[in-house]
Nucleic acid binder design. Structure first.
Lengths: 244, 244
DNA sequence: CAGTGGTCTAGACCACCCA
DNA sequence: GGGTGGTCTAGACCACTGT
C-alpha cells in the first residue's frame, strides 16, 4: 500500500533547508550560505544544490540576487504564506485533511456532453460523461457546491459510495491513475438557485467559482468542474515568482 | 532604452518549440522527438534541452511520461489556456497592452500604516506609507478599483502624473528596481460603497478581490494592495502542474 | 532488451556586484 | 579581482516502459 516515493537528493536537501529557514536557523539579514558551500555541506554538486534551492524560490521562500547571494523572504515566513496553492494537490479531502468532511450527492447521472464540455475534455459529444453535483460539508457547515463532468469510460465505476468520500482517492487508489495538473479560472458570481438552496446563501451573497480542467499525468483531461464556494468560507491563494 | 534581455539558449529553444506546437507542426497523437534528438537538432546538451521543455511543461503545454516520451496537451492548445497567469507580469498596463487604459486617482496620501499593513510590508507602524486608491478604466469602462499601500521611502517620488500612467513602469524605469514576485489571495465579496460608486456595481453585484503582496527581486515587500474587480469583467487564471 | 525521461556530477564560462 | 548566482556541457547512472 505504502509506495514510498523515494525522495530524490534535491528534494531531501530542499526539505532540510526549508526546515532551517522556518525554524529560523538562518538570520534574515544575511544571505544564507552560498551554493558551493552548501553543496559541499550536503555532499552534492552545485547543480543539485541549485535545484534544491530553486524549489524554495518557487515557493516564494527564498530569492536570489546574482553577485550578492541567496536571501530569505522575511514576510513570507512571518505571514506563513508559504506553499498554499503551488504544491496543492487536488481535492478537498486532501486539502482539509483534519476536518470532518461530508458529501451530499445532489445529481449523479450519465449523459452526453454538449459541445462546450466535450471540447474541454477533448472528447466527442458521443462520449458519455458522468454528471455529478455534490454539496461538500465541512465541520457541519455547507462549504462548496461542486459540479463535475468526467468521461465515464476513463473514470469508470463511480458509485454512490465513492461520491460519499473522495473521487480523487478513488482515481488514485482504485483506478491507479495519476493526476498531473490542472488549469483553473476563478471568478465571482451571483448565487443561483442551487447555491442559495444548498450553500444557504442569501440572494445577495456572492459566490466564488473555480472552473477547473484536471489532467492525468498522461495529459488526458479527466475532469471539467465548477466549484462554487460561499464567499465567506473560501480564499484562493497563489504564488507568482518572476523568472529572473 | 531598449535593454535587449539577451535570451538564453533554453529560452529561445523553448520559444521555437512552443511555436511549433501552437502551429501544429507536431501531431497530437505521437510523442514529440525525444530529448536527445532535439538536443542534437538544436546543437545543445540534453540538460539544456530538458530545461527548455521544462518551461513548456510548467505552462501546461506538454507532459512527459518516463519510458514513453513527451506529449502535447491537446486540450491546452485547443482551448488556448496557455500561459495566462504563470508568466503574467504585474500591472494592468502590462497585461492589457493594447487597450486604452485610464486612471482616476481617488485617494493619494501619506500615512502611518496600522499593524496589519505594517506586518505585511515587513515595516514598523512608524514607517510612512503611500495610500493610493485608483480607479482603472479600460476602453472607457470602469474595470478595477485598486487600493495600494507602499513604503514611501522605498518607492519614493510618486506623483499624480505617475498615478495617471503606471506605477510599475515608474518603479522599473525611474527607480530602477526590479519586481520579483508576489503572493495573492483571491476572494469574492459584496460591493462596498466605493465599489458601487466607481465600478458602477449594483448593490447585489459581487466583486472579485485580489489581495496582493508584491516583492522586489531583493525580497523586500514594496506593495500591499487590494484590487476589486467587477465580477463580469475579470477572471483570474492559474495553472498547476503536479511535481512528478 | 532498447528507448525514454529523471537525476546527478565535475567543471567551465559568463553576468553581476562590491570593494 | 574575488565572490556570487546563471547557464551550459558531456557524460554517467537510474527508473520506467514496451517488445
Amino acid at each position: 500500500m505504502k509506495q514510498a516515493p523515494k525522495a530524490t537528493k534535491y528534494e531531501s536537501i530542499s526539505h532540510e533547508i526549508k526546515r532551517r529557514i522556518l525554524e529560523k536557523e538562518y538570520p534574515y539579514d544575511a544571505p544564507i550560505p552560498d551554493e558551493i558551500t552548501l553543496a559541499k555541506e550536503f555532499g552534492c554538486s552545485r547543480m543539485t544544490m541549485k535545484k534544491a534551492l530553486d524549489m524554495l524560490v518557487m515557493d516564494g521562500l527564498l530569492y536570489r540576487k546574482r553577485g550578492h547571494g541567496t536571501f530569505i523572504v522575511k514576510s513570507a515566513v512571518d505571514n506563513q504564506l508559504v506553499n498554499v496553492s503551488t504544491n496543492e494537490s487536488l481535492g478537498l479531502t486532501n486539502l482539509l485533511k483534519d476536518k470532518d468532511i461530508k458529501s451530499k450527492t445532489i445529481t449523479f447521472e450519465v449523459m452526453f456532453p454538449d459541445e462546450h464540455i466535450a471540447s474541454h475534455l477533448s472528447i466527442t459529444v458521443q462520449t458519455p460523461v458522468y454528471h455529478i453535483i455534490r454539496l461538500r460539508i465541512v465541520e457541519g457547515e455547507p462549504y462548496v457546491l461542486e459540479e463535475t463532468y468526467m468521461p465515464a469510460e476513463l473514470i469508470s465505476g463511480i458509485t454512490d459510495e465513492v461520491l460519499q468520500s473522495s473521487i480523487y482517492s478513488y482515481i488514485k487508489n482504485q483506478l491507479h491513475l495519476t493526476i498531473g495538473g490542472c488549469h483553473r479560472k476563478i471568478r465571482a458570481d451571483k448565487p443561483n438557485e442551487l447555491d442559495q438552496k444548498y450553500l444557504k446563501c442569501a440572494p445577495d451573497d456572492p459566490v466564488l467559482e473555480v472552473e477547473q480542467i484536471g489532467y492525468l499525468n498522461t495529459g488526458v483531461p479527466f475532469e471539467y468542474s465548477f466549484s462554487r464556494h460561499r464567499y465567506d468560507k473560501f480564499v484562493f491563494t497563489a504564488v507568482n515568482i518572476q523568472k529572473t
